[in-house]
Design a protein around this nucleic acid. Structure first.
Lengths: 216, 216
DNA sequence: TGCAATTAACTAACTAGTTAGTTAGGTTGC
DNA sequence: GCAACCTAACTAACTAGTTAGTTAATTGCA
């Protein structure tokens, strides 16, 4: 009644990919067995090998189809519609990432653990596949606006993209546990978005402030 | 000639702990075997069980002795000498974290992977052991300064400590690979420190800026 | 002081359980 | 009847943890 080999429900392959990203986000890649992935998808572990050959090739598929094909495509679309004011672009970028974490809640934990971390299982796979042209142009835009005096001369354009990713992805990667940590308590994703946007808008804006350097 | 059971070199237990944190930082806890840890420390895997009983109790020792005893003690010392201006405290905190990453280069990767990530192997162990009183007082200090009009009214005091950790720890966790990513290129840790301090000083400072809200 | 008894530190070889991957065969729709 | 889809049962390799025994330092005591 349940198992017709032909087309069934929403495609066993897609189910396996989805089970994989969720388990990888919860337990890490090394901490997740192919049998677990299969079990959550409602099939046997042999199906993982049928559709993806090896666990490593399953990771390739996750990188290509889930990370590049879905998440990066969604966020990067924001990075090249015209070249508006960098600060406005930053704001759009932040909200885009926050929205992405609603559509793919498994993404920020997976990103932090397996893409950002050295030796992360998806890191090299993603570096090979990803086009850094758009972030590169974003960096150039910040640098140009900085030269024109419209951006805080003390910040580093090279590090700006990473700062945005850090301020959003790292908190989002532990969004599930926010209310378990008294220091943070009850905050919502929109509140995080407003906080990060405020911090970046004021932090990146050109300002006649009185900061003293250190370790120059 | 080399193997006298008695006292040998710098303490096998300490060597094992050190090998463990380095391997955990490189490969994650789940991706590291006790045999690997022993091999890097120059002993057999039975020694891990001799000194720590189980892998899980080795993790307890890492959390208590390395993370709480060394890193947190070093950074938290900064958090309670008087209650100076919050913005000055932020600057000291950032530099303290950057310095810690020189003394313990394995720390930021380990932190991001096994403390921040949900399901991280050191997460629960650290939550039990750590005293959040100091960050709590830091948060209160920010909130007070904000009420007094000395801090940007748009940022969220609850999220400020996490923002500082994110802006420092996440980039530092991939410091080893900075020059392999063209987008980032050659940056140094002091440059990161200056960038983060500049971003936070201007971002947190009370400013008569013209920001428009969204998703209010 | 001399030396047997004890102990801490350590290894090699093992066990029981788990893992990724294979294979031989069954079921279903077309 | 045949090709796509799927399972049960397997294997070879690896994993955490155990054990019995070795070695060098320390202690008790004549």
């Amino acid at each position: 009644m349940k198992s017709k080999p032909g087309k069934d429900g929403p495609d066993v392959r897609a189910k396996l990919l989805d089970a994989a990203v969720r388990l990888f986000a919860e337990q890490g890649v090394a901490g997740t067995t192919v049998a677990e992935i299969a079990r959550r998808a409602g099939v046997t572990s042999a199906m993982v090998h049928y559709y993806f050959k090896t666990k490593d090739q399953l990771l390739d598929a996750v990188a290509a189809e889930k990370l590049v094909g879905e998440f990066i495509a969604f966020v990067a679309g924001e990075l090249d519609r015209g070249q508006p004011e960098p600060l406005a672009l930053v704001e759009h970028l932040v909200w885009r990432i926050v929205e992405a974490s609603d559509a793919w809640p498994w993404l920020p934990p997976l990103w932090v653990r397996e893409v950002i971390s050295q030796g992360g299982a998806l890191r090299e796979k993603l570096i090979q596949r990803v086009d850094l042209g758009k972030p590169e142009r974003f960096k150039a835009g910040i640098a140009a606006a900085q030269k024109a005096g419209r951006v805080n001369p003390e910040i580093n354009p090279q590090l700006t993209f990473m700062s945005i990713m850090a301020l959003t992805m790292l908190p989002l990667s532990m969004a599930k546990d926010w209310d378990r940590i008294p220091l943070i308590g009850r905050v919502s994703k929109p509140e995080l978005g407003r906080h990060v946007v405020a911090l970046l808008q004021h932090g990146l804006a050109a300002a006649p402030a009185k900061t003293q350097g250190r370790k120059a």
